[in-house]
Nucleic acid binder design. Structure first.
Lengths: 329, 329
DNA sequence: TTGTATGCGTTATCAA
DNA sequence: TTGATAACGCATACAA
C-alpha cells in the first residue's frame, strides 16, 4: 500500500509537498501539482485516514444511536442523516441500541476518538453522558425525542400540536370516546402527544377518561394488545388514536380478528406517515413526519454543534394525511 | 483529554507499561497493574483508537454496504451483523447505496484504512473492486446475493430450492397458471428463484409461459404494477409468486382495489418472511429467510476472511410459512 | 514555493 | 518486569 513517501519519491518532492498538494493544491506550483498528481495515480496512493485523523485530531465520523434499527420509522431518518453526512464528507457509524449496554458502547466512541459527534434517535441520554450533563457534553443532537430533565438540542416536529390536530380531526367526525395508544415508560413523546390529545378533548368539553389510555410498545403487537384491551371495555371507544403507525397496523389486524370493521365500526388514526400506511387495509389516516428532512436537519444541527456553534432546537412541519381508516361516527 | 502520558506520570511508570497494562495485564506485576488501573480511573483516561489503529495497522471496523436501508428485509440482517460485530469488538459503518456513487465511496473505506473488511448486502460488486478482481480483493463477503461473474464468498439461503418449494406448494393446491414477480435487472436472485420456479413447473409438466413473468422493484409499488399487469392478461394467473414480501404487499393492495379477493379468487405467495407479513390482510404465506442468523454468519465469515482464512460459502436453511394468502384453486 | 523537522498517541522492539 | 526509543502516516511551523 503506497504512502506519501512513495508518492514523494516518484514525484521527486518532499512528503510535505505531497500533503500540501492534496490539502491545498493552490499552494503549490502548477508543475509540481501536476507531477504529484501523476505520481498519485501511478502509485495508486490512497490517503491513510487514521493517520490524518490522528494528526488533525478529528475523525469526520458521527455516531447515530438508534433505539431499534428494525423500526421502519427510523430508516428514512437515517437516510436523511446519511445524505447530509456524505455531502459534507462525514461518515456515519450506526449503533443499534435495542440490545443491553449498546447505548453506552456507542456513545463512548466520542471519547475514544472514533467519532466527533453523536446523534440519538429515539434513545434517551446514555448513562455515561448523563453524568457529564453539567460539565461538558460532546457535540450531540437528539432527534424525535425530548430529554425531559435538561435542555439538549433537539430536532423534531411539534408533537403536542400534531396530536391535538389528529384528535381534533376525530372529534370533528363525531367521535367522543377516543382511545389513545401511547408509547411505553417515561417516553417524552408520550407526554407531549398525550397533552395534545387532552387539549383537543378539553377544547370541546369532552371529559378525559383514564380508561381510554393504554401504553404499548411502538410495534404491531403493541397495537394488537391495545385493541384487545379496548374491546374488553364496557363502553369501547369509537375511534383509536395510535402514537405510531406500527401500532395502528396491529390495531387494524386485531380489529379484523375480532370482526370489527374499520372504519365503519371503528376509526383508527396512526402517527408517523410510514409508506406502508398506503398499503394497509384500510389505508391508514395518519400524521406525516418529514423523516428524511428530519434526518438532514439533525445532521446539520450536529455539524453546527461540532463547529462550536450554539445548537438550537429545530421544529419541522407535520401534516395530517387523510386516508381510509377514519370515518364519521 | 487524558493520554497515556498523563496516566504514566500519575502512576509513576513509563507509557510502555501503561500500554502493556491495558493490552496484556498479566505481563506486568500486580502492584504496577493496580497503580496503573488506579491512575486510569483518576485521570478518566480513554484510549485513542486512532493512534492505536495507526500503530497496529487495523481498524476493527467493517463496512456494510446495503442496497437500500429502507428495505425492511435488510434491517434484521444488519442487526445480526451488528450483534456478531460488537461481540467481537468490531464496529459497523453502515453505507446506504441507494444513492449514486455510494457503493464506490463506501467500498473505498477499506483502502483509506477506515475499515478492515466489507460486507455487501444486496449490492453488486462496486466498480473499483471489480477492477481488482484478479489481483487482491480486500476481505469481503456478499450476503443474499450471488456474484454471477466470479466466485466471491457468499452467505445466503438456497434460493433455487426455496423458490421451487414455494412454487410446488402452489401447484399442489391446484394452481397451474402461476404468475411470478421477479426483481429488476440482472439481479442474480432473480435468476436463481426463477430457475426454482421453472423446475417446479417442469416437474409437473406445466408449460412455462413467458407472459407470466414480470420484473419489478422489490417494493409495494412493484407489486401493484405486477398485479395490474396480470389482471390485464386474457387468461390471468390464479396464483402469484412474488420474489419479495414487499412486492406481495403491493399485490394484495392492488388486488383489493380491483375487487379480487385473496385467497378466494387469487393466491399470493411472498418471499422473505418479514414480520409485517403476519399483519397483512390476508396474512401472507411466504418463505422465511433466517435474517438475523444470516447477518451473524455473514459477519463470522468476514472475520474468518480478515484473519486470512479461506472464506467459504454458507447456505442457511429457509422455511415455508403457511398463512392465509394462499388457498386451493 | 519548497524542504526540514517535529509531533499527534500508541505499541513493539530491544536492552537493562 | 520495566524503560527508552523508534515508528505508524500525515500535516504543520518554521526556515530557506
Amino acid at each position: 500500500m503506497a504512502t506519501m513517501k512513495d508518492v514523494a519519491l516518484l514525484a521527486n518532492v518532499s512528503t510535505a509537498t505531497v500533503s500540501r498538494t492534496l490539502v491545498k493544491p493552490e499552494s503549490v506550483s502548477e508543475t509540481t501539482r501536476l507531477r504529484v498528481e501523476q505520481a498519485v495515480i501511478e502509485t495508486g496512493y490512497k490517503i491513510n485516514s487514521q493517520a490524518r485523523s490522528l494528526r488533525r485530531n478529528e475523525t469526520r465520523t458521527v455516531v447515530v444511536v438508534v433505539s431499534d434499527i428494525d423500526n421502519p420509522f427510523y430508516s428514512e431518518i437515517i437516510k436523511g442523516i446519511e445524505q447530509e453526512a456524505v455531502a459534507n464528507d462525514y461518515l456515519v457509524v450506526l449503533g443499534d441500541a435495542s440490545q443491553q449496554e449498546r447505548d453506552r458502547i456507542y456513545s463512548e466512541l466520542v471519547y475514544t476518538r472514533q467519532a466527533d459527534g453523536l446523534i440519538l434517535l429515539g434513545v434517551p441520554l446514555p448513562k455515561p453522558l448523563k453524568a457529564k450533563l453539567n460539565s461538558s457534553l460532546p457535540p450531540l443532537v437528539m432527534a424525535c425525542e425530548y430529554e425531559p430533565d435538561r435542555k439538549l438540542p433537539t430536532v423534531g416536529i411539534d408533537n403536542r400540536a400534531a396530536a391535538k390536530e389528529a384528535t381534533e380531526y376525530l372529534i370533528k367526525l363525531g367521535h367522543h370516546r377516543i382511545g389513545c395508544v401511547t408509547g411505553m415508560g417515561d417516553n417524552p413523546l408520550t407526554v407531549c402527544r398525550l397533552q395534545g390529545y387532552k387539549e383537543a378533548l378539553a377544547a370541546t368539553n369532552i371529559p378525559f377518561d383514564e380508561q381510554l389510555i393504554v401504553a404499548e410498545a411502538y410495534n404491531p403487537d403493541g397495537g394488537s394488545n391495545a385493541m384487545r384491551y379496548f374491546h374488553s371495555l364496557a363502553e369501547p371507544p369509537t375511534a383509536i388514536f395510535c402514537h405510531a403507525d406500527t401500532q395502528a397496523i396491529g390495531v387494524l389486524h386485531q380489529a379484523r380478528s375480532l370482526g370489527i370493521s374499520v372504519p365503519e365500526q371503528l376509526s383508527v388514526m396512526g402517527f408517523d406517515g410510514l409508506p406502508i400506511g398506503s398499503y394497509c387495509f384500510p389505508t391508514l389516516t395518519t400524521i406525516l413526519q418529514p423523516r428524511v428532512e428530519l434526518g438532514r436537519v439533525t445532521m446539520q444541527s450536529l455539524m453546527d454543534s461540532m463547529k462550536g456553534l450554539p445548537a438550537r432546537d429545530r421544529l419541522l412541519p407535520h401534516e395530517l394525511i387523510i386516508r381510509g381508516s377514519v370515518a364519521m361516527r
